[in-house]
Design a protein around this nucleic acid. Structure first.
Lengths: 345, 345
DNA sequence: TATATTTGTTTAATCGATTAAGCAAAGATA
DNA sequence: TATCTTTGCTTAATCGATTAAACAAATATA
């Protein structure tokens, strides 16, 4: 039953006995086409349910109106929210997006880049996988001359636009908050040092600790993949120390969750015995007990800004790929896992 | 610095002073091209970093090798896992996927369908938005003659391939489990009746309740959007009843979470006073306290099967869009929220 | 030797939309 | 009336890859 063959400009042209050029222009409301013809064309187009062939027009125009998005994973609220807001802005500007996930794998990320370039996207907005250290594939995007915008997980060396929060300052906020709570031995389970954002958090942690004259003990600073499981492992390590910390700041919410589970299993009073702070403000931080203090990264804003940055690039193609950083302020959401005062009242 | 203009077949042809046709065939290992020419072509292609223009080849071949995927949202573990496994299977078969999210909105879903058709995808794999009742847009996909496969949220009337779990039987498993726990007044916060899967869960609930000779009280059966917030609201309604239920089965984990929060706020003993069961086995069900009993839907398997079903369609185009249902068995994951026995020991 | 087959390649059409250039007819200007 | 503009459309080239058809040269077959 299905009308297999799609309607093309030619079909419309044949019916009206005019050229395909006229039809094309009529549909684009070209000023050189009479309104009579335009109406006729539009009517027939509607009747035949004409849908332009995107491949043909993209090929001809050298522009696909597609933007590729690479995220480490979609099942995190942060990335999902970034993407959603990005999409909203881009849709309004006539762009559609293609989402791909790297699953934190370097290989998968390279494949994603290939797929997107292959699909002839007009630009790529990406957040890098944890594993990624080799930037060749990103250089490939740059060398193709299409806009590349990074967010959250970026990389200075690439020298491209970047949107993210101030990780260094966020660490300061967290340490300051914990100090206010009376904590004196603050541990940090950080991400990979090689990743820019995690490195900034580590630097922020160290500087803030020193600033407050607290001990900067190397056994209190651990490097982690920040998965839930690794959060468990690293927390167990901290509990095994001769002198346990009285606060733990963890650079990711999932790892913080694993850590919290270990604390509960060990019947440790959170926050009074050990206070806990995560990072990312994933919804579950508010759901577990005790709810976990965390950092809100303004995902919606990051998504919108990334999209706008892309649009700026395409609207003025002369702008070179330049290091144009947009750094947002983060927000500390204090919850019971670090709020000793709430328990004193 | 960037080498703006991409290498085309023509560039290679010019260098080797052969026709583009020869180049094209050489790259495809056509048997009629001498191995000498093939080698030369491949060498030059590599040197010039040739990347075929997908738009051109898709236009010519009438096949984009792209599969569109529509999910209500990506930030649920279920959908994210489905998509990931789907992608794996499709990638191996030379297909790439384009993910779009409907955010449970009918309008957004229609836009997604338009985007995907516009991008000339070779097929669409979708799970319908909660809001969707009008099937016109899905009929549009069918009428275009491209394969459509639904999973999880499907619709009988569309008469297309469907992959999902046995919702009716799942409800039976849940009710049976609660009866075993000694529950006698089991409530159900279900999804929208109009949605096939939720309707099946409701039917399963009713039938199982009757089978065990329990009261099928209308005030114990509520219809919900199954958001976390609505879970709270509906649980409050149940608590306000003259005779409270001693078990609540909720057709979605997010709503179950909201309900659990209300129960905890009201200092109700879960599971002894009221037992709780969710649906979907989202990771947080294991994380909260008490952990929530839930149904595992085998997302990985669903993803793989959906992909395979698509591949079957394209490999034998004569197969009409037919009602080919693949129903998987679900699995009940019993956790503390409904496990009274664990507390007796 | 004459004919058939295989091999290796080129020519040219094609996918569908876009657009520069061309051109005829109508209208405006002098 | 003669010339210039504007209007409204057509022609034809183009984007880049693919492929049917054609063809020459080499090889096989009779």
């Amino acid at each position: 039953m299905s009308n297999k063959k799609k309607t093309t400009l030619k079909d419309i042209a044949n019916i009206l006995e005019i050229s395909t050029a006229a039809v094309s222009k009529a549909l684009q409301d070209d000023s050189r086409i009479s309104s009579k013809t335009k109406e006729a064309v539009k009517k027939v187009a509607k009747d035949l349910n004409y849908q332009p062939n995107h491949l043909a027009s993209a090929l001809r125009k050298g522009k696909s109106n597609l933007v590729g998005v690479i995220v480490p994973r979609t099942n995190s609220n942060f990335f999902s929210s970034v993407v959603q807001n990005m999409e909203e802005v881009l849709n309004k500007a006539g762009y559609n997006i293609i989402i791909t996930q790297s699953n934190e794998s370097y290989k998968k990320e390279c494949d994603s880049i290939d797929t997107l370039l292959f699909t002839q996207v007009d630009g790529i907005i990406a957040s890098m996988a944890n594993e990624t250290t080799d930037l060749d594939y990103y250089e490939k995007i740059k060398s193709r001359g299409i806009p590349l915008i990074l967010f959250d997980r970026g990389e200075n060396d690439l020298n491209v636009d970047y949107i993210g929060i101030d990780d260094y300052a966020s660490s300061h906020m967290i340490v300051e908050h914990l100090v206010e709570q009376g904590c004196k031995r603050i541990a940090h389970i950080g991400g990979y040092q090689r990743t820019r954002i995690f490195n900034n958090r580590i630097r922020g942690y160290k500087d803030a600790i020193e600033k407050h004259g607290l001990p900067l003990d190397s056994e209190l600073l651990l490097e982690s993949s920040l998965t839930q499981e690794d959060g468990r492992i690293k927390m167990e390590q901290l509990l095994a120390l001769k002198t346990r910390p009285d606060a733990v700041y963890i650079a990711g919410d999932y790892a913080a969750l694993g850590a919290l589970q270990v604390l509960k299993e060990n019947a440790i009073d959170v926050p009074n015995e050990i206070a806990l702070v995560g990072f990312g403000n994933e919804p579950f931080t508010a759901m577990v007990s005790p709810p976990i203090t965390s950092i809100e990264q303004h995902s919606a804003e990051i998504g919108r800004l990334a999209a706008q940055t892309f649009l700026e690039h395409v609207s003025s193609p002369d702008i070179k790929q330049s290091l144009n950083k947009k750094i947002l302020d983060a927000e500390l959401i204090v919850r019971d896992s670090s709020n000793k005062k709430a328990f004193l009242n």
